[in-house]
Nucleic acid binder design. Structure first.
Length: 595
RNA sequence: GGGGGUGUAGCUCAGUUGGUUAGAGCGAUCGCCUGUCACGCGAUAGGUCGCGGGUUCGAGUCCCGUCACUCCCGCCA
């Protein structure tokens, strides 16, 4: 009971029959019958129908109240007649007979209707986010987010982790994404950076002797947006543990994610013990390091087939001779699919910028296997049998080939796996398919410069006997680096860290950083590691993406209360904005005007 | 930085081959209606067809440019 209400709009039911109550909320909807007026009053807890007839002299005033006005209604709870019960509402068995009312907050004419299932442009939704957030779907999503985060905190504390906060103003790091920079007034010409992740801090927390760290950590990266990637800021469940190896991290995170997804979704978890797939296997079988394991299609390598003399498909044979490879996807029992099914996929592949996908179907005619389709005639029966053996295809199955360099083939077939599976409706939307991707290479070749660079986190521990590590073959070195993927979404990335400074210097040297530059750029951490650092490791699941999966949303703005738009602007608050010249002067900053 | 999509009433959209006065639903305003819950019925107001230029007797429609939003590629250790 407050000045404004005795109950919320979601809690009254048949047990309150006869009570005098006071409700406050927004006018969700009015239904005016001239002599009888229904008003749906809404708050975050629900909707309660209030009713008044024209014998009451308040009728004339209440019928004029615009939708989304904040109002207070006083009245008596009455049960509804049987045939007027609304089963859609928690309060649907009762209604409030209005005896008095008060306007608490007026509204101007609405730029977007709140009570509607219509879709609205992002522009209007973001500009009037406070109205958009009143709408039920996104309102629920935001509350889901709150509950999930609260649950995560309880779980982590249950696992013995403590939440420690780390700085928001820190130093710029040379690796990785662009930093957001913050000029320092007290240190003219120098800049702070917002943390891309609390990576170094969480390791420093371990060196400081705190054993199990977690944080719902804001992360800032000045990179371009995607539907599932906010520009600017996002949140990670940042985790770090001392005295652990990879499997110890896996145990904690599998338990946590199983608990979260079971509690907040009715969808089935395909494997509660997450399968572990090596990076190289994943790239071969799925063409990607974030495979959607709901999709049963797999990719296989058939390059060798195209060196056979009884294969006459000259375009591919020529490319293979020049170093291209051929990989393929088999679709089961697609013998009777119409020509358009195959041609659509080929056309789609061309639209993706490739040379298309060659295809054929295996058929058995007079006890002889042969390839049907435009390129079927180029393959002998024996060659077909060999392809079927290698690709595990059977009579009546079809196969789509892609030929090109490794990267292009992987990329196209990764997309094709998804495209074909959707065309054939092979993906069960009611499951969560988690997996670990493990054994990432420590280094890769930078395509532009041709130089060796860290493929992921430079602070990861290389695998194998550290005394026998062959630093001359850096591309062969694997790291204790791992990702979690769920339904094709990269959920998190983590590693066992390198806590040995001498080894760190050697590994950085391979990527072109001498000791001096490592000392300079990672001074905080490299110094700390020299004073008794425990073996440690961790991971950082993305909070936003977890919520997206739970809410079944494809766009991160649907689960973010006040998101930036794709151009990293806040249309409601007008950020970023110009600042006054004297503020810039104070910061020793000049704006260079573009022509 | 590059490519695709969209832009018409407050909101969501339709608008034919370039042809009369640009329409609908919701919302707003006014009127009618006693059991609705997407209430119903009638009327009224509401338009720089994103913006600029061009082609044409004539442009919402075609062309060029530009802006905004969005999706993708690059980017995101």
């Amino acid at each position: 009971m407050t000045l404004y209400r005795t109950h919320t709009c979601g809690e009254l039911n048949i047990n309150n029959n006869g009570e005098d109550v006071l409700l406050s909320g927004w006018i969700n909807k009015k239904r005016n019958h001239g002599n009888l007026l229904f008003v749906d009053l809404r708050d975050t807890y629900g909707i309660t129908q209030c009713v008044i007839d024209n014998k009451n002299n308040l009728f004339k005033k209440i019928e004029k109240i615009p939708l989304e006005t904040v109002a207070q209604f006083q009245g008596r709870v009455v049960t509804r007649e049987k045939d007027t019960i609304n089963k859609e509402l928690k309060s649907g068995e009762i209604e409030i007979k209005i005896t008095n009312f008060k306007i608490l907050g007026k509204t101007k004419e609405l730029p977007l209707p709140v009570f509607s299932d219509q879709e609205y442009s992002e522009e209007i939704r973001l500009k009037y986010r406070f109205l958009d957030l009143r709408r039920s779907k996104i309102h629920e999503n935001i509350n889901l987010r709150s509950k999930v985060i609260s649950f995560i905190r309880k779980e982590m504390e249950g696992f013995g982790f403590l939440e420690y906060q780390t700085p928001i103003l820190t130093s710029s790091s040379p690796e990785g994404a662009r930093d957001f920079l913050v000029p320092s007034r007290l240190n003219p010409g120098k800049f702070y950076a917002l943390p891309q992740a609390p990576q170094q801090f969480k390791q420093l927390i371990m060196v400081s002797g705190f054993d199990k760290y977690f944080q719902i950590a804001p992360c800032f990266r000045d990179e371009d947006a995607r539907a599932d990637r906010s520009p600017g800021e996002f949140y990670q469940l940042d985790i770090e543990m001392s005295f652990v190896e990879q499997k110890d991290v896996f145990t904690v995170v599998e338990k946590l994610l199983n608990n979260i997804f079971k509690k907040f979704s009715s969808k089935k978890i395909l494997n509660e013990k997450f399968p572990q797939i090596t990076f190289s296997d994943s790239m071969l079988k799925y063409g990607s390091d974030k495979p959607d394991l709901r999709n049963p299609l797999e990719i296989c390598d058939l390059t060798e087939i195209f060196s056979r003399t009884d294969v006459k498909f000259e375009i591919f044979k020529k490319l293979v001779k020049e170093g291209s490879l051929v990989r393929a996807i088999v679709t089961k029992k697609t013998k009777n699919k119409p020509r358009s099914f195959f041609d659509n996929i080929d056309r789609w592949a061309k639209e993706e910028g490739s040379n298309g996908l060659a295809y054929l179907t295996f058929e058995n005619e007079e006890n002889k296997i042969s390839g049907k389709g435009p390129i079927g005639k180029f393959f002998s029966s024996d060659a077909c049998k060999e392809i079927m053996k290698k690709s595990k295809a059977e009579n009546g199955d079809s196969i789509f080939f892609s030929c090109g360099n490794k990267k292009d083939v992987e990329k196209l077939l990764s997309l094709a796996r998804d495209k074909i599976a959707r065309d054939l409706d092979l993906i069960d939307e009611n499951i969560f398919a988690f997996c670990w991707i493990v054994d990432y290479p420590m280094y890769e070749i930078d395509e532009k410069s041709g130089q060796i660079k860290f493929s992921h986190n430079p602070f990861s521990m290389p695998q194998g006997d550290l005394n026998k590590l062959n630093l001359n073959k850096p591309l062969d070195i694997k790291a204790y680096q791992y990702d979690i993927v769920c339904n094709g979404v990269e959920l998190s990335s983590g590693a066992i860290r390198n806590h040995i400074p001498e080894l760190m210097y050697k590994l950085f040297a391979i990527a072109g950083y001498n000791k001096q530059s490592v000392d300079e750029k990672f001074s905080g951490m490299i110094n700390a590691l020299s004073y008794g650092a425990p073996p440690h490791g961790g991971i950082a699941p993305g909070i936003d993406r977890i919520i997206m999966l739970l809410a079944g949303e494809k766009n991160i703005r649907e689960i973010t209360m006040f998101p930036l738009n794709q151009n990293a602007q806040d249309l409601m608050m007008n950020a970023p904005s110009n600042v006054e010249d004297n503020r810039l002067k104070e910061l020793n900053i000049n704006i260079i005007k573009k022509k």
